[in-house]
Every structure is written in structure tokens, then in C-alpha cells.
């Protein structure tokens, strides 16, 4: 067992964990933050996307040990004082979700995308979200939501 300390949504979380514990399981089972989903578990679908030191990563392919000493942001940390984050609000307003399973990862990938490129074109959004699959195939409204969020944040 090893000791890890990860700052999750601004809060220091420390735990003794097995070295093989994946970050997504650290978030779900140790921190009890259950929004981040495990989808494919093979770095393909993006459902487990979180921000690690501000950039999007697939938390099924990161060890909790690798995140030791680093900062993680999940979708639970986005809203401020009951106000949805602009990306969350835009996903709701533009119907950017159907079943909702991909949504936490899709939102976090979008937050990361807009941090790096606050005014993306539609094509840049489609390319920027290549790592996230929506099994409902609701991509058009997801792209619209990210465009709307970029406008709202401008």
C-alpha cells in the first residue's frame, strides 16, 4: 500500500491505496465522487475524462499513484454556489445529452478544450472531442452546447 494525496476539486484527499488503483476508482470509491463514469475501461470512450493539472485525461488509464501531489477536477466541482458552470448550463440549454452516461466526461473534455481554446470553431470542437464517444450519437447538440458555452464565457 502507498500513501497518496490528491487535490480533488480543491480539497486535499489523502488515502492509503494499492499501487494498482486507477484514478477513476480512487475518485468513485475512495472520494465517493460517482459522477465520473467507467465506460470502456480501455482509453477509448472518454466517459471517465477528468482534468489533471488542468488538462483532460482519461482516468481509467491513470494510476491514483500518478496523481499523487497533483490536482484533479471532476464534474462535481464545476458548479459554484448552486450556479451551473457555463458548460453545464449550455449542455442543458442545448439538449447536449440524451442518456447522460457520456455527459460528465464530455463536459470535462469540453471544459479542458475551452480552457486551451476559448473560441473554437465547430470543426475544432469536433476534433477536440474526438476522444469522447456518445452512444446515443447525440453529437450535434453536444457541439452546439460547446459553441454556446464559448459564447457565454466570452
Amino acid at each position: 500500500m502507498i500513501q497518496v494525496e490528491v487535490t480533488v476539486n480543491g480539497e486535499a484527499r489523502s488515502a492509503e491505496v494499492e499501487p494498482r488503483l486507477l484514478l477513476v476508482h480512487f475518485l468513485r470509491d475512495v472520494c465517493r465522487l460517482r459522477a465520473t463514469n467507467v465506460g470502456c475501461d480501455t482509453t477509448s470512450c472518454g466517459a471517465c475524462t477528468v482534468l489533471l493539472d488542468g488538462v483532460s485525461v482519461k482516468s481509467c488509464t491513470v494510476l491514483a499513484a500518478q496523481a499523487d501531489g497533483h490536482e484533479v477536477a471532476t464534474v462535481e466541482g464545476l458548479a459554484r454556489e448552486g450556479e451551473l458552470h457555463p458548460v453545464q448550463a449550455a449542455f442543458r440549454a442545448e439538449h447536449g445529452l440524451q442518456c447522460g452516461f457520456c455527459t460528465p466526461g464530455m463536459v470535462m473534455a469540453s471544459v479542458g478544450l475551452l480552457q486551451a481554446n476559448p473560441h473554437p470553431t465547430e470543426e475544432e470542437i469536433r476534433i477536440g472531442l474526438e476522444g469522447n464517444l456518445c452512444r446515443c450519437t447525440g453529437y450535434h447538440n453536444i457541439v452546439r452546447a460547446v459553441l454556446a458555452a464559448a459564447e457565454a464565457e466570452a
Partner: peptide, 9 residues
Amino acid sequence: IGDPQVRHR
């Protein structure tokens, strides 16, 4: 290579 998340790591 891969996608943005993969390229970040």
C-alpha cells in the same frame, strides 16, 4: 496519435 486526452499523457 489517439485523441486529446491520450496526447496529454
